[in-house]
Design a protein around this nucleic acid. Structure first.
Length: 450
DNA sequence: GCATGATCATGC
DNA sequence: GCATGATCATGC
């Protein structure tokens, strides 16, 4: 019907740009946004572009080859951040694996997108949000190489009968995010009888943050680790990364500092050394690839007996917020599931010197994520019932939140400036700030092989 | 040696 | 000033 109005990308873009400066309330002719029920993208499609959304595999503007995406962001003290991942299309386990990347549901629909952005502000009614930009987005070559490999990783898991073990952290930019009512909402998979969670193709929110900053708000590009996209044609990002660091494996910290002319005695010296090995000017965590893929560098020092003392902490818990969260939308899930960690492993030998031993890209396996889910759920249940707090003989605080001895993977422990550093409880009163930790024994297990 | 509560220290 | 990576101290 009316799609025929938009025959070219330029026509779609022009119409999108006419919406800039308009509020969602002005755009919506159906009144559904005011009720809080209407999906914003659907309403813009219908009310602004004048056609009925369908579940057609083709992009919304089929003839122009453009998919419409309306995407929210937040202004934060650290700059603009995508509010959420961008969901592209369902991942049908039975249909996708035999396709090529070019014929995949993701690429057929989303190769070219009209991105319309608006700022989300907490406590402001949706009708008052204003469309502030409309741009045509096509993936830059260097991102596309990464995304092709992400797609291959997902297909390889389906072909191996492991669709139930897919998680968002498996991939860099293109992820398979949960898209069911909960983890019990499953689908069949072609090479295993085990049902797998309903999932959709999505672009990670970390990737969307960089897209918003670079292509919508015109920020300068971040420093790249892999400067030539052609290098990613035959090898993955992780392979190239390891290749660049390989010459330095086994060298001592003293030797490496001398080689790079680094005199710093900063605590994050190991991360600084890795940045130097890669020839970076800035920080490893600030690079284009690490930002887009949400890769977090973690330095791990192992003692002479191959021991690791450090547990891995996550941001302080918001006791009041988390009791109202759904696991798949919780702060902890969003911090852990889509994230990759780069373990930078140094070993302290008997001579007292630290040696660069290895690096490992790691994301939490699906089964262990489920275990964290259980720990999180118990913490939520305890907080709802009212957490018990008492003092031991030394006058230190004790509580009944999940302990390291109760799970092989995760626990809850204090993490504030000191025990007086407290946060409010949903049942009233306060307690010392706490956070989730991955057990030190679990972390040790994960890097055992490297 | 590990679990657990606590605090130091650094960088933004 | 705050968040958080890193580490300590004690007891089992």
């Amino acid at each position: 019907m009316e799609q025929r109005k938009y025959k070219t990308k330029a026509e779609v873009l022009a119409r999108g740009q006419e919406a800039v400066g308009k509020t969602l309330g002005e755009i919506d002719k159906t009144g559904r946004i005011a009720t809080g029920k209407g999906a914003i993208g659907t309403v813009v499609e219908e009310s602004w572009f004048g056609y009925k959304p369908n579940s057609n595999p083709a992009p919304d503007f089929e003839e122009a080859g453009v998919e419409l995406k309306v995407t929210p962001y937040r202004q934060t003290p650290r700059g603009i951040q995508a509010k959420e991942r961008l969901v592209c299309d369902m991942l049908n386990y039975d249909e996708e694996y035999y396709k090529t990347f070019e014929t995949s549901a993701f690429w057929v629909k989303c190769a070219c997108m009209l991105l319309m952005s608006y700022e989300h502000r907490d406590g402001v009614p949706k009708v008052n949000f204003t469309i502030d930009k409309a741009v045509l987005f096509q993936f830059p070559d260097e991102d596309l190489e990464v995304i092709r490999n992400d797609w291959k990783i997902l297909m390889d898991k389906i072909k191996a009968g492991q669709a139930h073990l897919i998680s968002e952290g498996d991939t860099m930019y293109l992820a398979a995010c949960p898209k069911g009512r909960n983890s019990q909402d499953t689908r069949s998979q072609p090479f295993s009888p085990i049902p797998a969670m309903k999932r959709a193709y999505s672009l990670k929110s970390s990737y969307m943050t960089q897209i918003l900053r670079r292509y919508i708000f015109g920020d300068e590009p971040c420093e790249k680790i892999i400067k030539d996209p052609a290098l990613l044609h035959s090898n993955t990002f992780e392979e190239r990364f390891e290749e660049m660091l390989h010459p330095y494996i086994g060298k001592s910290r003293t030797e490496l500092k001398a080689q790079f002319g680094i005199t710093s005695i900063a605590k994050n010296i190991n991360e600084i050394l890795v940045a130097a090995m890669l020839g970076l000017k800035g920080r490893l965590a600030s690079t284009d690839e690490f930002q887009k893929a949400s890769i977090v560098p973690k330095t791990i020092t192992i003692g002479p007996g191959n021991t690791i003392k450090e547990s891995m902490s996550f941001p302080a818990m918001d006791f009041c917020k988390m009791v109202n969260e759904k696991w798949e939308e919780s702060d902890l899930y969003n911090c852990l599931a889509p994230t990759k960690f780069l373990f930078i492993v140094f070993k302290r030998e008997d001579d007292g010197e630290y040696y660069f031993r290895s690096i490992k890209f790691w994301n939490i396996p699906a089964e262990d994520l489920e275990e964290v889910h259980r720990v999180w759920q118990r913490a939520v249940d305890i907080l709802r019932e009212g957490v018990h707090i008492w003092k031991d003989s030394r006058g230190r605080n004790c509580n009944n939140l999940p302990k390291a001895s109760e799970s092989n993977v995760a626990h809850v422990r204090p993490h504030g400036v000191n025990s007086m550093d407290t946060a409010p409880l949903p049942t009233g009163g306060e307690m010392t700030k706490q956070c989730f930790w991955l057990n030190s024994t679990y972390v040790a297990e994960q890097i055992k092989e490297v």
